[in-house]
Design a protein around this nucleic acid. Structure first.
Length: 262
DNA sequence: GTTGTTACCTGTACGC
DNA sequence: TGCGTACAGGTAACAA
């Protein structure tokens, strides 16, 4: 499931391969994934030149000489350069050199073309690797929800998903059920540093390959071997040996150590 | 405005 | 082997 490190890896592998390429044709078959009319979108894309690829939280923005093609990978989306066509291929862009293929079995992903970035991308919170500790703390102070749910809220910070929220809170030693607004400055600082640390390490490892995640070249990440709590229910805590628990916080599976995380 | 709940969707794991 | 069921989760829409 692609979160910030996985999307960053896709963008980094995609950027040198498609920047400068021109779109010769565009075909959309997965009408659930595409926001907008398939024929109109294809007509708008044909002839456009790709000028850059950037990441906004978990959104990928493919900048064109006119407008943007914005892609969200959802749970199982894959954006592949010269990817093979499968039963779950929803979009194919034929470029003047190679192709760009979008496939997504669960169809939770979204593709949208517009002359500017869509409002929901503009409404996202700051990047967790760029926000200051003070600003991060101020944003947490405004929220009367469990800190785990707040980290997942993309309008607070953009890009943190279930894996990295659990891993960051474990490293910070903070219980995921704690109310965000009730955290003191010391705990906020620990969450802030742990969030940045785990995201940086995961980017370095090219993300976590859970489910079917691969980057734009079809390569898997390796950070899943470094997970300390995520999907380790019942296993011993790497710090204290207590059993890792799984609970629901905000309807999301949440993994934590009840002894280390207070 | 904020918070909580639900639907969307299919592959996988599990029990019988 | 085959079937039914539970589960995974990011976002948007909706209700409170």
């Amino acid at each position: 499931m692609p979160e910030l490190p996985e999307v960053e890896t896709v963008v980094r592998t995609l950027r040198p391969k498609i920047t400068g390429r021109r779109i010769l044709s565009a075909e959309f078959t997965g009408l659930r994934v595409l926001i907008g009319d398939a024929r109109e979108t294809a007509e708008a894309l044909v002839g456009r030149k790709i000028t850059g690829v950037t990441r906004h939280g978990k959104f990928i923005a493919i900048a064109l000489d006119q407008g943007f093609l914005v892609v969200h990978l959802g749970m199982t989306g894959r954006l592949l350069v010269d990817g093979e066509l499968t039963k779950w291929t929803h979009a194919v862009l034929t470029l003047d050199q190679g192709s760009l293929v979008y496939e997504d079995p669960r169809q939770f992903g979204r593709i949208e073309y517009g002359v500017s970035l869509p409002a929901r991308v503009a409404a996202l919170g700051p990047e967790p690797l760029e926000v200051s500790e003070g600003e991060f703390g101020r944003r947490l102070k405004l929220r009367r929800s469990p800190v785990k749910a707040v980290l997942l809220n993309q309008s607070v910070v953009r890009g943190v998903g279930n894996i990295y929220a659990d891993e960051a809170l474990f490293r910070a030693g903070v219980n995921p059920k704690r109310m965000a607004a009730s955290l003191g400055a010391e705990r906020v600082g620990r969450v802030y540093r742990a969030m940045q640390e785990v995201l940086r390490e995961a980017i370095e490892a090219r993300g976590s390959s859970i489910s079917n995640y691969v980057d734009a070249e079809g390569c898997q990440g390796s950070f899943q071997t470094a997970h300390r709590v995520y999907q380790r229910t019942g296993e011993p805590c790497v710090n204290c040996g207590a059993e890792i628990k799984r609970i629901l916080v905000g309807q999301r599976g949440t993994h934590y150590c009840g002894r280390c995380q207070r």
